[in-house]
Design a protein around this nucleic acid. Structure first.
Length: 478
RNA sequence: GCUCCCAUCGUCUAGCCCGGUCUAGGACACCGCCUUUUCACGGCGGGAACAGGGGUUCGAAUCCCCUUGGGAGUACCA
């Protein structure tokens, strides 16, 4: 039997990092098993679902490198893959259940329902109720009422017995018989409800493994009832622990950046995001931490999940980003920088040789790509930074001598570009002719040439700096 | 309230199933030292955890029970 796994988001917003994580696990599992990965859009909530969000989520999925074999935009043998295009299928199943007396049309008005709930509450019973008034019904009678236009929903007739199943991450899970009542499967507007169409689709699409977040654990009891009623085989379930925020509550918008698109906008590397997400609640068998989806390959399995919720920590994400940044070849970094640079930025104007040298000089100092762009400031900026170490360097008696020496060298009209060799020559001259050495030499020339007392390898930095900038900096001191 | 789930450093986790090899390993963050005549990178080192209580056992982080704490669900949302 080929493994078939699905990711079933509802298009009511942008792709959430939690969603990306379950999508990733599903995708990884399908890949590792040589199975199929399916994208299904759960847009039965017509009010909140938007095509715009569906498109955005697909784009985000592609951005992080998750591809699917079947889905709304690429089709497949069990389509359509958008629930809004499958309403007749759910109707068919629902009425089959009604005809088999396993579900019933319920004509309870809102007021009647509210009264029942209130009564249950008053009696300190669970708020759900079994709607005895309609549980036994005459089908022709019901059909007549429906034809007459009376509003109704279809409720599933709860078999009122305990259920249990084996969860791949949680082990045996037992549900007592009184957990839910006769729940709605088709709403008054004729549209199906999540717990119903989810099962129908998983059956129709021959899904073998359902990997989803733990918030769905309690839904499983309803779904188990439906599988049983329609006599369909039950898939394997894996309820993955939730992602939580600083306050240890389920991660949501109020925790800050929680949608994948935000990370894309901030120029995080998709491979870093995915690497980090993968390790939140799952551990690599070799305890490796930095890896790509491809490197993970067949090592992914469903046995290494942690059962407790995982706290989402941006600081650690940044560490992963830093690590993945370092894995990228300079040429790739260069192209990315050119792509993200603002239109008036200096970086794209430089020669590729300059750009590569610059990247190699700074790439170990940053965690996020845009920080590299900011580093160009250190090359072109003409100002003295007011810091104690700088003041100290300026107070040395050798510093003005260094400045005079360098000023003379820079004023040479034949001088066109600064090079590493030239810088070395100057330093040697300073040492031999002016007898300046050690900290006063290096720190002093750094202060005078860059306006700051710390930074990258001065020799390389000098070779990147235009002569004009150096002259302007020296002029600051007169 | 009721139902379900969970519990190892501040955080992510390994170990738990199949008790001894665990004075509990790794990673992030933090601190220190070395390296670098700067900064960073890197290297080395440090502090830091088995929620509590009972069992079972020669022996428990590991198995059982209770307590406490945390989370999720309890919809004509998904």
């Amino acid at each position: 039997m080929t493994v078939r796994v699905r990711f079933a988001p509802s298009p009511t917003g942008y792709l959430h990092i939690g969603g990306a994580r379950t999508a990733l696990y599903s995708y990884l599992f399908a890949r590792a098993q040589g199975g199929k990965f399916i994208l299904r859009i759960e847009d039965t909530d017509l009010e909140r679902s938007k095509r715009e969000y569906e498109l955005a989520q697909i784009e985000d999925l592609k951005w992080v490198g998750i591809t699917y074999d079947e889905g709304p935009d690429c089709g497949g043998p069990y389509g359509p893959y958008r629930q809004s295009e499958r309403f007749d299928i759910y109707q068919k199943y629902a009425w089959q259940l009604v005809e088999a007396s396993m579900a019933y049309p319920c004509f309870l008005t809102e007021d009647e329902l509210a009264a029942l709930t209130a009564q249950a509450e008053a009696e300190k019973k669970s708020p759900h109720v079994y709607h005895d008034k309609y549980r036994s019904f005459d089908l022709t009678e019901a059909r007549k009422k429906i034809a007459a236009g009376e509003p109704y929903v279809i409720r599933f007739k709860n078999p009122q017995k305990p259920y249990h199943f084996k969860d791949l991450v949680r082990g045996d899970v037992h549900f007592k018989e009184d957990m839910v009542g006769d729940f709605v499967i088709i709403r008054a507007n004729g549209l199906p409800v999540y717990n119903f169409c989810c099962v129908i689709d998983d059956v129709e699409m021959k899904i073998t493994h359902v990997i989803r977040a733990e918030e769905h654990l309690n839904n499983t009891v309803r779904q188990l009832m439906i599988y049983e009623a329609i006599k369909a085989p039950i898939p394997e379930f894996a309820h993955v622990s939730l992602l939580i925020g600083e306050d240890r509550q389920k991660l949501s918008k109020r925790h800050g950046a929680t949608s994948v698109s935000q990370y894309r906008e901030e120029n995080y590397l998709p491979e870093a995001l995915i690497n980090y997400l993968c390790l939140l609640g799952w551990s690599h068998p070799d305890e490796t931490d930095i890896f790509s989806i491809d490197e993970l390959g067949s090592k992914f399995d469903l046995t290494r999940f942690s059962k407790s919720p995982a706290l989402y920590d941006i600081q650690k994400l940044k560490f992963f980003n830093e690590q993945h940044l370092r894995r990228l070849p300079t040429s790739v970094l260069r192209e990315k920088l050119i792509a993200i640079a603002p239109t008036d930025h200096r970086f794209p104007e430089q020669t590729p040789e300059w750009q590569d040298k610059f990247i190699e000089l700074y790439k170990d100092k940053i965690q996020l790509l845009p920080e590299l762009l900011e580093k160009t400031d250190e090359v072109f900026r003409v100002e003295m930074l007011d810091e104690p170490e700088f003041q100290e360097a300026m107070s040395w008696e050798t510093t003005p001598q260094i400045r005079e020496f360098l000023k003379k060298k820079l004023d040479d009209p034949k001088l066109e570009v600064m090079t590493e060799d030239l810088y070395t020559q100057w330093m040697d001259a300073l040492k031999n002719e002016l007898k300046i050495k050690g900290k006063p030499l290096f720190m002093g020339s750094r202060a005078v040439l860059t306006g700051v007392t710390h930074g990258p390898d001065l020799k390389i930095l000098m070779a990147l700096t235009p002569i004009s900038v150096l002259k302007e900096r020296l002029a600051l001191f007169s």
